[in-house]
Design a protein around this nucleic acid. Structure first.
Lengths: 232, 232
DNA sequence: GATCGGTGAATTGTTCAACAATCCCCATGA
DNA sequence: TCATGGGGATTGTTGAACAATTCACCGATC
């Protein structure tokens, strides 16, 4: 056919064309509200009220709940409803355990990373620096998440990407549950820059070591802040 | 109150008491059928037909579909229905990439593993040896999965357990898609025994090395068998 | 005064029926 | 042979209905 040439140029539009279900869009909206704190940990989500507010039926809303439940952002208590998850201390430790395994592995094999993957790490670093310059602490947190997502992407593994994305979303819940999340992220901007530089220079083992130290420090800090912030 | 003492002894019953929803039970039933091959990769699951066969409504069935979709056992194509996933070569490689990261990490920190975790690895080894003795190749495969699940459990991390469980379930799909799955697992029974022995002796780095070699060999073998078995 | 038990409203779990939107097959026509 | 366009089948979504369960309230009992 005459139009066959240049067809591959349209392949980028595939994602945009894929219609998504109502349930998925509802899940996206809810995820946003949960992550930015509009829906606080522990809050109960009434099927009737929320469905009416969002203009969707209860069945559709329940599908969305299921999606977010599998991301551990919501917990589903049988016959009792769904609630925004309330991470505990054990969850913080567990999140870091898995992140350690996956992100460190990704960094160590960064030499086999796909084209442009390291550059995306750098972009996240700059985003963080810019936000820090503006004094936008929430923006710094977002950039930080993107930084670690980019680190995970070095593994060139869709499943790693997905798992890490879930872990990081859950981690944002932890920030809401702890005391003084405001200045948690800012100190790490410089470290991110250092890690990125090491990656660019191919000094992977050193980068992994820096990252490992970061995990130690951040986890300890988080555990402490969390113990203070939570009741108990 | 007089009954407060010894209450914590009952906490183990919590799981057993939790009633499960119909959707979850349906998902369990379907998962079993998918894993044991009764529902072949690529098969389409009609909402109407399956709902009638299982005696549940379409809505409930759709909830079950969503659950299995997140385990990557089903793929949901919008407006087209759900199908049993058909893993490709890239999926095999990706599965092993993540398994490598998580299982190796778990083995390396086995010294901090919970009480009895190493023993459960041993139990899986013996289960495999028994099945091999009976010539029950499918049983050997099941024991092998349990072996690796037990390895992952050394990390003492609920999220690791869950991710690995999903990865292994998906891997069983790969076995159905490849040629000659019959004698794939049997050769590894002896290796499992060796790894368990190293774990018992606390020689963790050696155990990790054996496991790493296993991943190399198994992945290559699987990739080859898969290329032959699949059309292409 | 604290505990126990029951009543009832509110919410969830599940089903059913309906309709719109979409896909896929197939016949039609050039 | 290939494009075109129905038409049937299936999914997406809604709304209503009913059973099952939870929870808060309130009185009864010791």
């Amino acid at each position: 056919m005459a139009t066959s040439e240049g067809l591959e140029a349209l392949s980028g539009l595939r994602g945009a064309l894929e219609r998504s279900s109502t349930a998925e869009r509802v899940a996206d909206a809810l995820r946003e509200r949960i992550i930015d704190g509009a829906l606080a940990p522990g809050a109960r989500l009434s099927e009737e009220a929320l469905g009416q507010a969002l203009g969707v039926s209860r069945n559709t809303l329940r599908e969305a709940f299921r999606l977010l439940g599998h991301e551990r952002l919501l917990v589903h208590r049988f016959n009792r409803g769904v609630f925004v998850a309330e991470p505990e201390l054990a969850d913080v430790v567990d999140l870091y355990r898995v992140r350690r395994a996956l992100e460190l592995d990704a960094v160590r094999r960064a030499d086999r990373a796909p084209q442009g993957a390291v550059a995306r790490v750098g972009a996240a670093v700059e985003e963080g620096e810019a936000a820090a310059g503006r004094g936008d602490w929430w923006g710094v947190g977002t950039a930080n998440m993107r930084f670690h997502q980019a680190l995970a992407a070095l593994a060139d593994s869709p499943r790693t990407d997905e798992v890490v994305r879930r872990l990081l979303a859950e981690l944002r819940l932890v920030f809401h549950a702890m005391a003084a999340p405001r200045d948690f992220h800012v100190p790490y901007v410089a470290l991110n820059r250092r890690i990125h530089r090491l990656l660019e220079e191919g000094r992977l083992e050193e980068a992994a070591q820096e990252l490992s130290d970061y995990f130690d420090v951040a986890e300890r800090q988080l555990v402490e802040a969390f113990s203070e912030g939570a009741q108990g």
